[in-house]
């Protein structure tokens, strides 16, 4: 499985280039023509990147996640979900690199065979940085009114969290303490 994902990318690029050559597409010219937009697009999203990355870093630095973890702790104990999962639940929609850091911490703290680690892995594996995607994608085309896009993203995120807990229980019942 691991190896498979390693080969998908090169296989895809090879496939596209081969078909291109085969169909007599001037692949070098077309590549550089397409690549020209890279600079413009990357620069045009800087304002939106700054806004969302600054906001999220401040949220993580101010200790709000720890406060929330303390407040929700009792509830999570009651429904038998490890309390240490809460930071992952919140961060998975905010920052991809931060959530991978949290996952590494949990795996090294509890061991890869623990229920906490399995649940964390499923939760991270099924995550997407919702707010980053929304601000960058909408920002790149100058959309200011997001309408129901944020709500749709939040619904998908909450569904993902609940399903991850259910799936972890279903697949790894032996590791629940």
């Amino acid at each position: 499985m691991n190896n498979l994902s390693l080969y998908i990318l090169p296989a895809m690029i090879l496939y596209i280039l081969t078909i291109g050559i085969f169909k007599k597409v001037p692949i070098y010219e077309e590549f550089t023509e397409g690549a020209k937009d890279g600079f413009k697009v990357a620069i045009s999203i800087i304002p939106y990147l700054v806004a969302i990355i600054v906001g999220i870093s401040m949220l993580r630095a101010c200790g709000a996640i720890e406060i929330l973890t303390n407040i929700c702790g009792d509830f999570f104990n009651k429904v038998q979900v490890p309390v240490d999962i809460i930071p992952i639940m919140i961060t998975r929609s905010l920052s991809g690199s931060a959530v991978l850091g949290l996952l590494s911490d949990i795996v090294s703290q509890y061991g890869p065979e623990s229920f906490t680690a399995k649940l964390a892995a499923i939760m991270v594996g099924s995550s997407e940085t919702t707010f980053y995607v929304l601000s960058v994608y909408f920002g790149s085309v100058g959309i200011k009114k997001f309408r129901y896009a944020i709500l749709t993203g939040i619904i998908a995120d909450i569904t993902g969290i609940v399903l991850a807990i259910l799936a972890a229980r279903l697949f790894f019942p032996a590791s629940i303490l």
Binding site: F31, E33, A35, D37, F39
Partner: peptide, 24 residues
């Protein structure tokens, strides 16, 4: 800004590849 700058190259590369896929 670092993220955006690292995106420049990646974006250019993928937009180039996609353009070939389009033309093919």
């Amino acid at each position: 800004v670092k993220v955006a700058f690292s995106l420049i190259g990646i974006m250019a590369f993928w937009l180039g590849i996609v353009r070939i896929a389009e033309k093919a």
